[in-house]
Design a protein around this nucleic acid. Structure first.
Lengths: 337, 337
DNA sequence: TTGTAGGCGTTATCAA
DNA sequence: TTGATAACGCCTACAA
């Protein structure tokens, strides 16, 4: 457990620390043989330059932070995969943080990142109705941020989203065309941007088809699965919708459980379409109609935008980009398809 | 975008850098008012001590690395959640790395971690049949490692696993009891520890019930979904098993797709049980019988063991622990339940 | 091609 | 209670 660093290597090889350093830094100013000797010894000692020391000098961490509301969720897991893919190619590492949709956690983590812990941040946000000034600090520190999927409209950073409005419109219209008259909209937090936009698509589709919007049919759910089950059960018993448009896959699953227990048959008595990135949606009973976002591609794109900014840094002003990818509506049995 | 650090704060407040530093380090040797003044100014500047500089000094990174074969997988996603939970409570951050089950990626990442990038490592391994010496280097550097779920038997570190043998035995026995005579075992890599142990449970259950083991019924699949589909289709057409015991949930899903396309009815013509952490297994068509590992708890336990070692470091020898949690067999419709 | 030296931002030690 | 100073390990001008 002898400490090893470039100084030790230098002594052992009777070279200076700068030469050792050069061996690790693709510097051309070094004799090939010297370099080989150094690397050989380093391998023997299992030595690699200390990342924290290098970062301190260079002010580059080779690390990007990824902040998401949840990890155990097909959409985010796939998006993270996409981000990882790009990061890896660039030789970057990923610091992962989960907010559980709690705004305070988001703030505290972002503030922590202020101290040069990461070169950039990719995040899907959780605190729509709050003060977003904590993000301004990052701007000052020159830490680029990219939002994906869930964004703050009032913050000027690059954003990767999907055509939620169109998809929601299309899905709702599809339910209407299969005969639904009373379509409930399930949402977790209707005040966050995604909840709002998706709802607008729903509302406008209703209007186009001359169906009056009914506030009672907008069902605001929670993070807790048991509570959601109770809410949805109550809705089905009392409000008796004939269609469900769910903005989040969890709520569609909860609806399935409720229907199973209440012996309500999907799609005969209730039709369902949901936003979902679940790969096995076709295997559900019945197969779930989904609006599927290109999660992996969104991750790729978000990471690409971030690296664009990282690489342009200190070279002129950075143009923030908005990128909108297309979701796809898969009509399956749950909506009579 | 003026650079801010303790020096600047010191100048602004006419104090020394040491005093500033003390204000951030719960040091008692500081006047309360002074501390308040410092923290107030820091807040105004959105300042936090640079993490890389602190780490360099203290040789503590407050970061743990998590290495998993895949992220978009219910088991690992839940395990990561568990790890994150514990890490967060300890004020630690998570560096996430995905190996795609490629041994070389695992090695290269672990080697990278040699340089003091993380204080400890939690991993689920991918390279059973290889030389594991690269892990010895970590030992020298005093970087503790904990394995979970997929482990190397020949490496002496703490391990968190589940009772795979018993579960596999039980699941196979269950299939036999429902009348299966030709049970196929689906595995991704039968040479890795998990594949082996699970297979042993399968083999022994067959033997107990006087069913001859048939090599043909051990189906070695791949990482590629399309190839798996083809393999499984061929098996069902040609080898005609009446039961499937899948060591990995992906393969059970592939089987479902094949059966759907071939109009083979589950469980009438083919019964299935699979290892799986899918929360919505009951919603599949038909509901999937699963052996469900306590993924979240495994993450919690693995992280707890790691922090135990981290906290004991430099204080006597560390005892490596083996922890075996219990999986649960859920009998559902896919196996006639 | 290699060496010297200063500093990245922080904190621990020692002194005041 | 506060201040001066020397590291932590590395990299990069600049000098040789």
């Amino acid at each position: 457990m002898d400490k090893i660093n470039i100084k030790v290597l230098a002594k052992e090889l009777k070279l200076s620390t700068s030469t050792i350093s050069r061996a690790f830094n693709a510097s051309s100013d070094i004799n090939k043989d010297t370099r080989e000797r150094i690397l050989a010894l380093a391998r023997k000692h299992n030595f690699l330059p200390n990342h924290y020391a290098s970062s301190l000098r260079d002010k580059k961490t080779k690390t990007i932070a990824v902040i998401v509301p949840e990890i155990a969720n097909d959409f985010f897991a796939q998006a993270i995969n996409g981000i990882e893919e790009v990061a890896r190619k660039k030789g970057f590492y990923i610091l992962l943080y989960r907010t559980d949709d709690v705004f305070e956690k988001e703030v505290s983590f972002v503030n922590y990142l202020n101290n040069g812990k990461a070169d950039g941040i990719i995040m899907s946000v959780s605190g729509e109705a709050n003060d977003h000034n904590y993000l301004k600090a990052l701007e000052q520190k020159n830490v680029p941020v990219v939002f994906f999927d869930r964004v703050y409209e009032d913050i000027d950073v690059s954003k990767v989203t999907t055509n939620d409005y169109e998809s929601s419109f299309e899905a709702t219209e599809h339910l209407i065309e299969t005969g639904c008259k009373r379509i409930a909209y399930l949402v977790v937090n209707k005040s966050i941007s995604i909840g709002k936009v998706r709802m607008q698509g729903y509302v406008d589709a209703l209007e186009k088809h001359g169906i009056a919007f009914d506030d009672e049919l907008v069902i605001d759910c929670s993070q807790d699965e048991k509570i959601n089950y109770a809410i949805i059960k109550k809705v089905i018993e009392e409000i008796k919708p004939d269609g469900i448009f769910s903005s989040v896959e969890r709520l569609a699953f909860a609806t399935y459980y409720v229907c199973n227990d209440m012996h309500i048959s999907i799609p005969e008595n209730l039709k369902i379409v949901s936003f979902s990135s679940l790969g096995i949606a076709p295997l559900l009973c019945p197969a779930l109609s989904t609006i599927t976002q290109p999660a992996y591609e969104m991750g790729i794109k978000a990471a690409t935008l971030l690296f664009d900014e990282l690489e342009k840094k200190d070279r002129g002003p950075i143009v923030k980009k908005q990128h909108v990818l297309k979701s796809k509506l898969f009509i399956r049995k749950s909506s009579g398809g």
